[in-house]
Design a binder for these strands. Structure first.
Lengths: 163, 163
DNA sequence: GCACTTATTATGAGTGCTTCACAATAAGGC
DNA sequence: GCCTTATTGTGAAGCACTCATAATAAGTGC
């Protein structure tokens, strides 16, 4: 696995290069996102508080937004879910979400750089200059598929569900 | 353009076939979405109230959710924006949003049926059975591009902006 | 056409996620 | 170590949406 100290130093220099101060709150948030990819703000807060109990939810929101703007974090908003954050940035990868349990998996970008797809404009629309193409895959994960096979009486489908 | 009466009759029979009653509220919402594609619930409410002033916001939310579940409407959730609705369903088309003004354009599906893309799973992730691939294109529309050329002193960029 | 049953809508309050305004704190340059 | 200003904490507010319940009206049978 990655070396904690190395991560911290890399983050510190990245923060410096963006003119940001290196605070324990920012480092705690970055470490929490690193170790809990695809987590919502609330989950980041809980994880970061293990190292820094006095951290507040509002600080987490501020830090997450700022670091996302700086491209040090990436925000991802699945339908019917709060925003999720990850440290994997700059590779334009995509996401697959399970419509049954909400689990998120990374999917490599087929092309490897943005935009990875070129739109086919229909005749009535005005073309835009595309910068990014985000692909959201929706399906059923292996675990949920297995659960759906068994239950004849039990019927324990969707834990979070699509609502 | 489309014939209003024909639309109404088509919607009425579709509602019947789903076991729903044909109410003026549902027809007003459908007509409002038809004439204002990519509008949020609030916009649908405003449009529908021109025909049906006593319609309430809560009813619009209920009707939109129900019709979306029935696949008579499609819901689309751009980042930092409330959900948008459209009557174009069943063709798995995609969307392009302008990051400057928020304008939305339809983009035909590259392949024409869902899923239109097959993910390349990275070695650490557990593959899912994919049912839908939604592509979200983000870029700058022609109008905003034109605005960004001119202003040297004026600097009137982003009206809604990415925040 | 008229009453009746039940889906649908209106009313009003409430929830989750996120942001805002301002005061308290602390990072980094001198 | 001190000072300036970014950053964080505190408390409240906002938006989009949902929930619970009562009032209304669509569609059915007579």
């Amino acid at each position: 696995m990655a070396d904690h100290t190395a991560d911290q130093e890399a983050w510190a220099s990245a923060l410096h290069s963006h003119g940001r101060r290196v605070t324990k709150q920012r480092l705690a948030v970055l470490a929490a996102v690193q170790h809990n990819p695809h987590s919502p703000a609330e989950g980041i807060l809980a994880a970061a508080r293990k190292d820094l109990p006095e951290l507040t939810a509002q600080s987490v929101y501020v830090v997450l937004s700022d670091l996302t703007d700086l491209q040090m974090l990436r925000r991802f908003e699945p339908p019917h879910s709060p925003a999720l954050y990850e440290t994997r940035v700059g590779d334009n990868h995509h996401h697959a979400v399970c419509i049954s349990c909400g689990r998120v998996e990374d999917v490599d970008c087929a092309v490897g750089h943005a935009p990875c797809l070129t739109p086919h404009w229909d005749e009535h629309s005005k073309p835009m200059t595309i910068q990014i193409a985000d692909v959201l895959y929706q399906g059923i994960c292996q675990d949920c598929q297995a659960k759906q096979q068994l239950p004849t009486q039990t019927q324990v489908t969707h834990e979070i569900g699509e609502r």
